[in-house]
Nucleic acid binder design. Sequence first.
DNA 1: GCTACATAGTGAAGTCACTTCACGATATGC
DNA 2: GCATATCGTGAAGTGACTTCACTATGTAGC
Lengths: 152, 152
Amino acid sequence: MKSLHDMPEGTASASVSLDRLFELAEVLGAMMARGVAERGLTTARAGLLWALLHDGPMTQRTLAARLGVTPRNVTGLLDALQADGLVAREAHPSDRRATLVSLTEKGRTVTAALRGGRNSMAAELFGDMTATQLEAFQGGLEVVIERLRAMR
Amino acid sequence: MKSLHDMPEGTASASVSLDRLFELAEVLGAMMARGVAERGLTTARAGLLWALLHDGPMTQRTLAARLGVTPRNVTGLLDALQADGLVAREAHPSDRRATLVSLTEKGRTVTAALRGGRNSMAAELFGDMTATQLEAFQGGLEVVIERLRAMR
DNA sequence: GCTACATAGTGAAGTCACTTCACGATATGC
DNA sequence: GCATATCGTGAAGTGACTTCACTATGTAGC
């Protein structure tokens, strides 16, 4: 079972790299969950706020599509965020079925803090790299991401 | 809000790299969830099987520690895995409070398939890299993982 | 030996993210 | 004007997790 000849050349070290990738995903996920929890959020709710920060006010339907989840799920997330005063549901100007969701003042404050945290995290992780190193690393990641997406 | 002078030198590109990292974590997670679902599993259950594959039969308590979850949670995961015939709960030889969990024949078959899938995924991702390139990439990942762990 | 205390697993109850299905309210095509 | 698609949400359910309480068993200390 542990023979070196069970696998084609190079598979073992490629598997180690993949293990590292999974490890990274795990650590990163835990990291983010913790950071976000410190501000009274969950990753799902933070993701929603993040979407609003980047793309501005949106319909719930659009939000669902952007997050890749069911519209029903968005309803639930918004209920919580609205109860915390982070988002507001307003009437859509031209479609009375739809709801326009936007960040409240408090929501903007919280997302700004999240962004700040993210930036200092990035600085701590990559701050001492040269622009060249950084670009190389980033390029490698992009290749991997690209291939992963192509794999489906 | 979008001024180039809001942040210290280099922060912007570091943030882009971090974004890539998060993107990678997301894609990788989705990928794994799908692969594992094709075999009738969830990531949590697959993680448990994986632990058993690597470290052999274990106590539920040990399993909980190894997975970083509550013992109670392990009970639930095992209930499902046992119902599917993938693991077996045996009496611990020396401690009558404890339960020894091990893979069944079917469990070994499934984990072998999972490992095969992982290996071919690794091959597809990294197969065309030279050993040198691979080592460089892996080294970069390890640095990042290390720093992330140190960050808590 | 017995008592005191720690440890292994599990029932009960609850949270969070997510889903499907059904339904009422509105928009839209013809 | 009417059929039909679309927007949001109630109801119900799943899976991964948690805490808390409880039973059964191991382990000291005396």
